[in-house]
Write a protein that binds this DNA or RNA. Structure first.
Length: 522
RNA sequence: GCCGAUAUAGCUCAGCUGGCCAGAGCGAGGGAUUCAUAAACCCUAGGUCGCAGGUUCGAGUCCUGCUAUCGGCACCA
């Protein structure tokens, strides 16, 4: 036990407290949770971070509308998000809030450093201003509005404001070099190409403070200004592990993150502004910015106007019907992790559940344990080696799948990782069909063969279950209990070694995933 | 408007640098079987490979045009 465990650090975006939790939040966090659980199973020292973004004009306004303070609103909604995470049994190690003192003070420290280094300077911002509403609109938004106030109808005017800017333009070359040297820095590749395309158009400095609202972190030394979201929020990844404390915090060993997992809508900030800020602060870059796509709902884009968000109630409906693990499996294998959006439909969910979980994982474990029960009195037989029927080298086959699984998981390719485990299960089914232990069992002469075959099946399923545990922790725990497999060892690879299943272990019959009828939605 | 993709069986998609009759999974239909959650297994899809041209001995696989769909277009004050 000489050297300390290798660290692993993964983050979700921090969620805006003014939003209502929906499938997007659950999805991103679940992907991270699966990875975090897998890394823990592999013995790594994991730090899995999530949290809430609580500042900004929207929160200020919503709170005012309800007659409470912004902090009261943030407290309320942050608690709500946290409740959701716990409901989904998401195993975050820390939940950071941008209103916490530990965050505020470190952001101010960071900004002070940037000011000293010249990466932040006072400049003039010019934009389209709505005099009645006292707010600026972006160029695109102003155009959309026809350069008139959506409230009063009065024309927007060009106005200027003094703001602090981040010298993003100075980092063009260094960013290009970063992207060139690390092709996996932004994934998937289609997203990387988008960023590269925009990078070619050149970078402008970005204003990082506002003066039109107060609910935010005061700019150190000039408290008229409030630090805007793209510094405040992004910095959470660093402040949570104490990177801007003096000296660096206890958790600084986790830095930098292996993965910042985000939705595609915030790619630019994570892929360009964030790395530039880190360069300015002299901090090492994260391993990968992984931008997943979006879920669409029953073939339609989710939108506020359609009101078709897959919300918490619906997700809870799926969870209570199919189980949390089924929802996790569906999201991880059928989700928009790649470049294109994926459809979340009741029919497809049901189909995936039935095909993969009921008919494959559940049934395979069931038929195997039933035979062990029937032919071997419910105890694990001696290890095979009868030279049996199958020409399959199970040790070789499973170790290949395990390797692929671990490799894919390391690279945050969840679908490929899970597929490797599923291949083991499917191979067991094929093996049973090929060797037909249920027929051999009629002949007492063949009892050795039967025992050998069933050992192979049990052992292969056990190994597959180790690989599936990060995705479906609850059901795999049931299997562990029914088959007396004990708790995970913390060394996933070793645990997946062929032949670790002890002969004599008591094996009970299991039915992990109940067959369900597809309920028609009203 | 600009930039970039994609368009292949009912559905989701593989088809890399062009070459035996265009594939997989799921669904659907049929068969056989029983260890199992009517599950696993076997057979079945005759699909203009978006449309129109072109290059080539030969093109989903390269080029051009068109159509459709999708993504991105930063300071989201």
């Amino acid at each position: 036990m000489a050297e300390p465990a290798e660290t692993a650090y993964i983050t979700t975006p921090i969620y805006y407290v003014n939003d209502r939790p929906h499938i997007g939040h659950a999805y991103t966090t679940t992907l991270c949770d699966i990875w975090a659980r897998s890394m823990r199973a592999g013995g790594r020292d994991v730090f899995f971070l999530t949290g809430t973004d609580e500042h900004g004009v929207k929160v200020e306004k919503s709170a005012r509308a309800r007659g409470i303070t912004p902090l009261e609103l943030a407290n309320e909604n942050a608690a709500e998000f946290r409740k959701v995470m716990d409901l989904f049994e998401l195993t975050y190690d820390d939940f950071i809030r941008t209103t916490e003192a530990r965050h505020v003070s470190q952001v101010q420290t960071a900004v002070r450093r940037l000011l000293e280094s010249g990466d932040v300077y006072l400049g003039e911002f010019e934009g389209w201003y709505d005099e009645g509403q006292e707010e600026y609109h972006t160029e695109t938004k102003a155009k959309e509005l026809g350069y008139a106030s959506p409230i009063s109808g009065q024309p927007l005017v060009r106005a200027t404001q003094t703001n602090y800017f981040f010298r993003l333009s100075a980092y063009q070359e260094r960013l290009e070099r970063l992207f060139g040297e690390r092709p996996d820095f932004v994934r998937p590749e289609a997203r990387r190409n988008e960023v590269l395309g925009r990078l070619r158009d050149g970078l402008q400095d970005v204003p990082i403070t506002r003066t039109n609202f107060e609910w935010g972190i005061p700019f150190p030394g000039d408290e008229e200004h409030v630090i805007y979201v793209w510094i405040d929020a992004l910095m959470n990844y660093a402040t949570a592990v104490g990177m801007c404390e003096e000296p660096d915090g206890d958790r600084s060993r986790y830095w930098p993150a292996d993965f910042h997992v985000i939705g595609k809508e915030i790619l630019w900030f994570h892929a360009v502004i964030w790395p530039a800020v880190l360069m300015a602060l002299g901090l090492p870059q994260p391993g990968c910015i992984y931008a997943h796509s979006f879920w669409i709902s029953e073939g339609q884009k989710m939108s506020k106007s359609l009101g078709n968000f897959i919300d918490l109630e619906q997700l809870q409906g799926y969870m209570s019907t199919y189980g949390t693990d089924a929802l996790r499996y569906f999201m991880a294998t059928q989700g928009p992790q790649g470049a294109t959006d994926s459809d979340f439909s009741r029919a497809q969910f049901h189909e995936t559940y039935t095909t993969d979980l009921v008919n494959t994982v559940g049934n395979c474990a069931s038929r195997t344990s039933a035979m062990v029960d029937k032919y071997l009195g419910g105890t694990c037989p001696a290890r095979s080696g009868e030279g049996a029927v199958g020409a399959l080298d199970w040790s070789d086959f499973t170790s290949g799948q395990v390797r692929e699984h671990l490799d894919a998981m390391d690279r945050f390719e969840l679908g490929r990782a899970i597929e490797a485990a599923m291949r083991i299960i499917r191979r067991v089914d094929t093996y049973i069909n090929e060797t037909q232990p249920f027929k051999l069992a009629r002949d007492p002469e063949e009892s050795g063969q039967v025992a050998g075959i069933l050992y192979d099946c049990l052992e292969a399923i056990r190994i597959a279950s180790c690989l599936l545990e990060s995705t479906m922790p609850a059901r795999i725990a049931e299997l562990r209990a029914a088959w007396n497999l004990g708790a995970a060892s913390g060394d996933l690879e070793a645990e997946c070694g062929w032949g670790r299943l002890e002969p004599g272990t008591v094996i009970s019959k299991v039915a992990l995933f109940p067959r369900l009828e597809l309920e028609e939605q009203a």
